[in-house]
Design a protein around this nucleic acid. Structure first.
Lengths: 232, 232
DNA sequence: GCTCGAGTTGATTCCAGAATCAACCGAGCC
DNA sequence: GGCTCGGTTGATTCTGGAATCAACTCGAGC
């Protein structure tokens, strides 16, 4: 309580590294086994650390997993904020947000996988609410879109919130294609995907052209009777 | 083994109903608590049935959960296939696929929630591979897009697989907006969303207009250094 | 009415794996 | 050298909840 402060060599840097190692290991195991399959023992082994030490650094399993998510997400969020403020035009901003997402995936696919697999899953009771984190980006992006709308860079009759949702949806699924291995992860395919996502979205959303598609809108076709549960 | 066949009154219809009830209860609990929070005891209680009975109808927890997913997904898949074959033009088909998705949500939001929260979030090890199921729709949609491409209804330089991924991504996230409560679930908002998703996607993907956006493509901006794990 | 067996029950068993904790370092300090 | 004290260890304990199973219910057939 009155030791480091100045001298010595490591003002707690060592512990910091340990913590990192554990987090990193958690990401690894997590991305392999998923939330429920992620055992503390595995994390400890992966990190090359004793079982008990995990509990020295983290209150419990939930806090650990939460930290994994938190760390990844807050980092991503920061990047998105930065990117969204960078370009001058709407197009540029959208472009750089997409860039951030793909770049993240390039650098650390495992971490992105964890985020992708876990975002959206919010067992309302358990752990922290990922929904909240998620809501945050959507909120953020909405602002971007609202502004664009004011500047006439976005169709005025679109709901910004929904635009935001679709935007990240397109990005997420695009990446999911890679995460799941539908598309092999090569620099050229990645680049093409990044480009395609940006282009498609911008084209889809800009007030430029309207390809008349006015069919029987107002009361969509809809199909027949849905309902779940069938089989036996 | 030699009883029903013809006479009597119920050739096992009773059991069928029980099974249904349990499945239905599972969907309920599942959508409330998520995969890992879904306890057999809860399902049994929800179904108004004894704990043990669940095991009479299902081998084990995994099989139950798998059935939940399977039932929902196969139903959805069938609808999509049907919808994709319905319209004559590409636009109409896309429109009706979107319609199927939204209609499903209207009818059974709980079930859709389960699918949305669970599709793609597959702990590669655990349970069945949702990835496979997921791959299936993507595959399916790809065909639709490939055909459209041959007919010049879709930009020729786009990857159909990626288009498919983006397509479902946009739909999924659009619905997620409702599932998570960002947008309140009213008929008008739903309708508007459905419309917007369709329109945006079609506009984004059709060869009609190209809003030049050629910036420094080929080497995307990218931001700075990524990497996960920070905080302390 | 009695028998048989499928459907049904819930207390009991069993175990994976989370969380605990007492003992064990090893580096500074007297 | 002895002492302190935080980081570190892993065997031990504890627990939630999955899976089992012996007993009960009830309708159909004799």
């Amino acid at each position: 309580m009155a030791k480091d402060s100045s001298a010595a060599k490591a003002p707690g840097k060592r512990e910091e590294e340990r913590r990192r190692a554990i987090l990193r290991a958690a990401i690894e195991v997590f991305s392999r086994k998923g939330y429920q399959g992620c055992r503390i023992a595995d994390v400890a082994k992966e990190a090359g650390v004793a079982y008990g030490l995990v509990y020295h650094y983290f209150q419990n399993k939930d806090e650990l997993l939460e930290s994994v998510f938190e760390a990844g997400w807050s980092w991503f969020l920061a990047r998105v904020i930065e990117a969204a403020g960078k370009g001058n035009t709407f197009d540029e901003r959208v472009e750089s947000v997409v860039g951030v997402a793909f770049e993240s995936y390039r650098r650390d696919p495992k971490a992105v996988k964890v985020l992708i697999l876990e975002v959206g899953r919010s067992p309302s009771g358990g752990a922290v609410n990922r929904g909240k984190a998620f809501a945050h980006v959507i909120q953020l992006a909405s602002q971007l879109f609202e502004e664009a709308q004011r500047n006439g860079e976005l169709k005025p009759d679109h709901d910004p919130k929904l635009c935001a949702a679709m935007f990240f949806g397109a990005i997420e699924m695009g990446l999911t294609g890679f995460v799941m291995g539908f598309i092999d992860r090569r620099e050229d395919t990645l680049l093409a995907a990044q480009r395609q996502v940006t282009e498609t979205f911008l084209r889809g959303v800009s007030p430029g052209t309207q390809r008349t598609l006015e069919a029987a809108w107002t009361s969509p076709k809809s199909s027949s009777k849905p309902k779940l549960a069938k089989r036996a």
